[in-house]
């Protein structure tokens, strides 16, 4: 506090007011951001190091960003000082300056692209409401799920330590979670657009309209692949194969369909056992859809 004594009185009181405003914790902030050209579908990009992202389709032409940001900067396990602020017996912070950075979630618009980002120190829960046709680019690293509901634009999601859950979406999707489950329900499929749903440690569970035309590439290294689509097995694409792993491997690659009617009748599913990738077409084939996980199961469901 030696510094503040050296400061003129005016500056001191300003700091005090600032400090008081700050001490009132971090309420949910809401900003409404218009696209510069609302006649064209825009893009929303959200990148968070720590926190969760929720995107919902709304009826407005603008984008609403609601955030709860906590600038604790000490990680989830050491939240002591922040919690203390909220308790009644918390030590007073009156007359003191806060030296940590203000809670920072930035929202910017440029050329029909709205970018929401947070600094490394901030843990933020971000809820965004967008027009349904908006394209999304979502990146999360720690501490939260990524949820998307009702959006029809193209969706590009990556989450490192958390799940990805897409419901009722209509655009082409590419989703990758390193340590988390990927769940997606598509109400429609963009014609001719390839998609990819992948995880390293987690299940990949995708529900498609029953009439979806696609070339599927399905793989789980340590789990199984399940579907209730009528998958027509196809040959893997040609490659410069090594002679010694030719036929033997391909035999093992072949889809084994276990159509045991008694065992799986209630589920209406049959089981595909994989050693490696399963290639197949549904409804006559179409763009490539890749579903892959290392530790987990892969589900391709036909919407009822």
């Amino acid at each position: 506090m030696r510094m503040s004594r050296l400061l003129p009185m005016g500056a001191c009181s300003l700091l005090l007011i600032g400090g008081l405003a700050y001490a009132q914790s971090t309420p949910a902030n809401q900003v409404t951001v218009p696209f510069s050209d609302p006649t064209r579908p825009g893009t929303v990009k959200v990148s968070l190091i720590r926190g969760s992202i929720t995107v919902k389709a709304g009826t407005a032409r603008d984008v609403t960003v609601t955030t709860t940001a906590e600038a604790d900067g000490r990680g989830d396990l050491d939240r002591g000082p922040r919690d203390r602020d909220r308790r009644d017996d918390a030590p007073s912070t009156q007359g003191m300056r806060r030296l940590t950075k203000p809670a920072g979630v930035n929202v910017e618009e440029e050329n029909n692209v709205i970018t929401v980002s947070s600094d490394v120190m901030t843990r933020a829960e971000v809820i965004v409401t967008v027009p349904a046709a908006t394209s999304l680019v979502l990146r999360a690293v720690n501490g939260g799920q990524v949820l998307v509901d009702g959006v029809n634009g193209s969706i590009d999601v990556t989450n490192v330590n958390g799940a990805i859950r897409l419901t009722n979406v209509g655009g082409p999707v590419t989703a990758h979670a390193t340590n988390g489950r990927v769940t997606a329900t598509l109400k429609q499929v963009a014609a001719g657009k390839p998609m990819a749903f992948t995880s390293f440690n987690g299940d990949v569970d995708v529900t498609l309209p029953a009439s979806t035309k696609a070339n599927l590439k399905l793989r789980s290294d340590r789990g199984d692949v399940y579907t209730d689509f009528d998958v027509k097995a196809t040959q893997p694409p040609p490659r410069t194969a090594q002679q010694d792993r030719g036929r033997d491997q391909r035999e093992r690659d072949r889809v084994e369909r276990d159509r045991d009617p008694d065992k799986d009748k209630d589920k209406g599913k049959y089981r595909i056992e994989v050693d490696r990738s399963v290639y197949g077409t549904i409804n006559g084939g179409g763009p490539d859809f890749e579903l892959r996980t290392f530790n987990g199961d892969v589900f391709v469901r036909a919407a009822k």
């Binding site: 989703a175 990758h176 990819a196």
Partner: peptide
């Protein structure tokens, strides 16, 4: 920048 594109 996209893992799925790299994978493909």
């Amino acid at each position: 920048p996209n893992v799925n594109v790299r994978l493909a």
